[in-house]
């Protein structure tokens, strides 16, 4: 039997969840035995080269490119996992959702912010090549169907590891209380 193929991406996230994935330390050697990576920042494959089994999404959707990538993942992966708070509920980028309009947001970033010093022509980037910002930041499951959600900011490496192993081997997953947290990585728990 061929190894399951895993793809990962970071949308409107901070790459913290990917860092957390790397925190599985030496188990990454086991992981490579267990699965094969396709499109992912970890191996720097930019486009899908084959149909994947598991897609791991970090971050929500804040612009048109995020939506495009997410839909591409849905098309190419059998199972999609939302990893971390941003993918699940928008996270910190979603803090603009309820108070700040896109116009205000761009003006603050490119014109009004005290740290803006070089933008003398008062340009807000508008090249057609650039992705358009969405009216708000959307959680991934409001754009496409997401099969599993792993909460945490970022989720603990052990949790990601256990979830991947459970998914690949089909065994039930152990979910201790200390590990399901919305605001940090959870604490180490006593393994049975």
């Amino acid at each position: 039997m061929s190894k399951p193929v895993v793809a990962t991406t970071s949308l409107a996230g901070c790459f913290g969840c990917h860092m957390s994935l790397l925190d599985i330390d030496e188990r990454i050697l086991d992981l490579v035995q267990l699965v094969e990576f396709n499109k992912s920042p970890i191996d720097d494959i930019k486009t899908f080269t084959k149909q994947c089994d598991i897609g791991i999404i970090e971050g929500g959707c804040c612009n048109s490119e995020n939506v495009h990538v997410l839909k591409d993942f849905r098309k190419n992966c059998k199972i999609l996992i939302s990893l971390g708070e941003c993918a699940i509920m928008g996270g910190l980028p979603a803090m603009r959702n309820n108070r700040v309009s896109v116009e205000e947001c761009l003006k603050e970033a490119y014109l009004n912010c005290p740290s803006v010093t070089a933008n003398e022509e008062q340009i807000i980037p508008n090249d057609p090549e650039l992705p358009m910002m969405l009216n708000k930041v959307y959680p991934c499951h409001e754009i496409v169907k997401i099969d599993y959600h792993i909460p945490g900011c970022a989720p603990r490496a052990d949790l990601i590891w256990e979830a991947l192993v459970a998914l690949v081997t089909g065994k039930p997953m152990n979910l201790p209380y200390e590990i399901i947290k919305f605001d940090y990585r959870g604490t180490k728990w006593q393994k049975k």
């Binding site: 708070e85 996270g91 910190l92 979603a94 803090m95 959702n97 309820n98 900011c153 919305f182 605001d183 940090y184």
Partner: peptide, 8 residues
């Protein structure tokens, strides 16, 4: 509501 756990 707007329950942003990581910043609360």
């Amino acid at each position: 509501g707007n329950h942003m756990c990581p910043v609360c």
